[in-house]
Nucleic acid binder design. Structure first.
Lengths: 331, 331
DNA sequence: CTGAAAGCGCTTACAG
DNA sequence: CTGAAAGCGCTTACAG
């Protein structure tokens, strides 16, 4: 590596002081630098391929244009890599870079990672959670500009998916197709799970608005096998099902298997709507109509909130778009 | 935020010079600082909760303990988020942090991101690719310590999955179960695709060692529908299939559908082995025996290579472990 | 319109 | 055993 060009190199070549060179390069036209000097500095910088040493600049300005992204986990569904991608893209558009770390839910590791980022003088934090939930902000983040990502805490800026509206949307897809009776929900709804609670509330509200209600909620884990067993059991009990609202695509996948094994066709006999819009939703046949988590948009929105509205404790609820595929038909 | 404690604050409280405080905190026992001074500095630092300003330190030492992770894409299969996770974990274990960015395959954006990281004085780079492939190192990275991740270039350190051995392993799973005839491969093998080429080479070699060979290669895209159609067409043409080696789990998923529709059972009538070990492999029934991409291990290995063997152009081929499930049986 | 000087918070020869 | 001083590469009052 050849040594980096410094500001003093540019200044010397342009025949001005570092002060003047700095003013020109910073674009501070309030300093009334002469046309000639401006031109010479610009030319010198270009010829030498000058790039400012941001470490030095940051030491002086106290600004690093770097954001810390701290999350319990990064790679896993449903709080997926697309969130990271969205955050990175929004940051880069605003000339920032992201320092990323995973806490694995370990408070000690979390503390250390936040300190490590603070030592590197990050300008602010994105604090993320895999599942949407209420969190308490770590002490280490106290007093530092932070936006919660897929998490909520009193008095703090946050970005979450609008699960309530998503629940309504899922139910409305069925209502629009003409379904009123025999609508079951597949997947347990633990009180502690924000997404589940809100989805169910939205579903219930939309059905109530239409003067009807859920036939039943099949309590099972959010995975193919449990869902398959739950649906099979319901069918075996003689219940009629005309439509299933599955808590996620994996549960929908299992439900699909149960229906097939029972000789029921989707969507001719039973319609299915689910949540997440994971890859699975498009691989399965028929494709699943699914309400998507706006991962990328959430990452973007969090960065935008952090950078554009530094003082406000706004909670942004992002729309969860419905992806229509072939799993819904008239009853 | 209360102002950060500086080294000079610690020194004053301990009654020593910043020099002495720095030596103590840096653990430079070659400087023979007195027991008493050492104790006082340590106590003062602890009481004040001192943490060094890494920006200032970096400006002086030219070391940031920060690594730049540049990849064409980060969130997508098969070069998955687990790679990022592994890299982050290995970095944190070594007291480093990761600056992460995505180039989206755009050379201009790539150039800019690398420069942005260089401006922040990163100590080195991980340069990643979504698909394993030969790359040419961007000019901007010239002369900077770099490890390729899921990519190869002459004379450079790199971490890639051992696809050749993986191909052998897939074939051996079938051979061990007693398969010799009627083994087909599902999925096209473009010359440009390193993974495909090597997998096929490994399969071919293992079968040849056992004195047999692939019945055919079904050329189709690596997705459920194309694979389903290709397998259906083969069956319709009257070919007999006893085992399928599918280029990835999505192709295996499609193959499974085609077999089911043809009334063939897996694994009783036809065995299936595939690659990737994605979530799909465990959701499907029977579960797919699949050769896994060691994402997390690759991320870890790349960081370790970068930090522990800075001068060597080692190419690490990481083992792809076979995950055995229910899709293979004796013919 | 321009430059000399101070200072951001550290580390590290150097001198004693 | 310890400290005064220089310096990493910038930015920015301040003076002229």
């Amino acid at each position: 590596v050849t040594d980096r060009v410094r500001l003093s190199d540019v200044a010397r070549r342009a025949g001005v002081s570092p002060t003047t060179a700095s003013f020109v390069l910073a674009g501070r036209d309030d300093m009334r630098i002469s046309e000639a000097a401006t031109r010479r500095v610009r030319a010198a910088a270009a010829e030498l391929g000058y790039r400012p040493n941001r470490t030095a600049r940051s030491l002086r300005t106290q600004i690093t244009e770097t954001i810390g992204f701290v999350s319990d986990t990064i790679a896993t569904e449903p709080f997926a890599g697309a969130t990271v991608r969205g955050a990175i893209a929004a940051a880069v558009e605003r000339n920032h870079l992201l320092l990323i770390a995973e806490t694995e839910g370990d408070p000690e590791l979390e503390r250390r990672l936040i300190d490590d980022m603070l030592d590197r003088q990050v300008d602010g934090f994105l604090y993320g959670s895999m599942f949407t939930r209420e969190v308490t902000l770590p002490d280490a983040l106290d007093g530092h500009r932070t936006v919660l990502l897929n998490a909520l805490a009193p008095g703090l800026a946050a970005v979450i998916p609008d699960e309530l509206a998503a629940g309504r949307a899922a139910a409305e897809v069925l209502l629009e197709a003409g379904h009123r009776d025999g609508v079951h929900m597949v997947g347990e709804v633990p009180e502690a799970l924000f997404a589940a609670r809100e989805r169910l509330a939205g579903i219930t509200a939309a059905l109530a608005d239409a003067g009807t209600a859920l036939e039943s909620v099949l309590e099972c884990e959010w995975a193919p096998l449990p869902a398959c067993e739950a649906v099979a059991a319901m069918l075996a009990a003689g219940e009629t099902a005309k439509a299933l609202i599955c808590i996620n695509d994996r549960a929908a996948f299992g439900s699909l298997q149960a229906l097939q094994e029972a000789g029921l066709r989707v969507p001719a006999d039973v319609s299915i709507v689910s949540f997440d819009d994971s890859d699975l939703a498009q691989w399965v046949r028929p494709g699943l109509t699914s309400v998507a988590l706006p991962h990328e948009a959430m990452g973007r929105a969090a960065v935008e909130l952090l950078l554009d509205a530094p003082e406000q404790a706004i909670v942004k609820r992002l729309e969860m778009p419905v992806r229509r595929r072939g799993s819904v038909a008239a009853p």
